[in-house]
Amino acid sequence: MDPRQKLIKLIHVAKRDLRLGDDVYRLLLKSATGKTSTTDMTVPELEKALEALKAKGFKVRHKTRPHPNPSPKGRGATSRTVDQEAQSRKIRALWLGLHQAGIVRDPNESALAAYVKRMTGVEALQWLDEHQASRVIEQLKKWGFRAARQAEDRADSEGPRAQ
């Protein structure tokens, strides 16, 4: 991949990580470079846009590779890979939805993996079989429904609000 494409991809990752709406994202690009689209930018302009995103809190995370000399227990220093199977994507979407609703505090992959391990005893999302993944999906849905029901009950107990 050429450097320009890498920068564009990184800028889009930053947009997602910072949870920027399209209008805010384009304003940020325009203030940094005078352009509202990464496809219209030169490499130096893309670098300026990336620096502006870093100033807003984006941190570039590099993928780690397994350590060439794994420990005696057979565990290398590997990063947690993100499984792209349909059920895994559904689990991740439910998890992030619960986070956006204020139910889950930590939206990170490691927190999701810890939850999956508590539910199934399986260390990583990509190692779940179909039955285990379905069980995790159903539990996440139930958690969301319970939280929504509790919020409704609280709202009902407060009674009608004065206007």
Rank of each mutant, 00 (worst) to 15 (best):
S37N: 12
I91L: 08
E85S: 14
S110F: 07
S79T: 07
H99G: 00
L98P: 02
R161L: 05
D153F: 01
M1L: 05
S37E: 13
L128N: 01
L27T: 12
D17A: 14
D83S: 15
L98H: 04
K48T: 04
F58H: 14
R149N: 00
I11S: 00
A124K: 08
A77S: 15
L7T: 02
K35H: 07
H62T: 10
K117T: 10
I11M: 03
V43Y: 09
L140E: 05
N108W: 05
L98D: 01
Q139N: 11
T42Y: 06
T78G: 09
H62N: 12
K9R: 10
R154T: 10
I103Y: 03
Q5W: 04
D22R: 03
R149A: 06
Q150D: 14
A133N: 03
G21L: 05
L46W: 00
A55Q: 11
T64Q: 10
P70S: 13
T78I: 12
P66K: 07
A151P: 06
L20E: 05
F145Y: 12
V136C: 09
S134H: 12
D153A: 10
V24P: 00
G144H: 00
V24E: 14
A111S: 11
V122E: 03
E158W: 03
Y115A: 03
L20I: 04
K141M: 08
Q132C: 02
K9Q: 10
Q163F: 11
S110L: 10
T36E: 15
A114K: 14
I8F: 11
L46P: 00
G76Y: 08
S71F: 14
P44V: 07
K56G: 02
P160T: 02
V82R: 14
Y25Q: 03
K59V: 15
R16C: 04
A148G: 06
R65S: 09
K117C: 13
D106M: 07
K54R: 15
V43D: 07
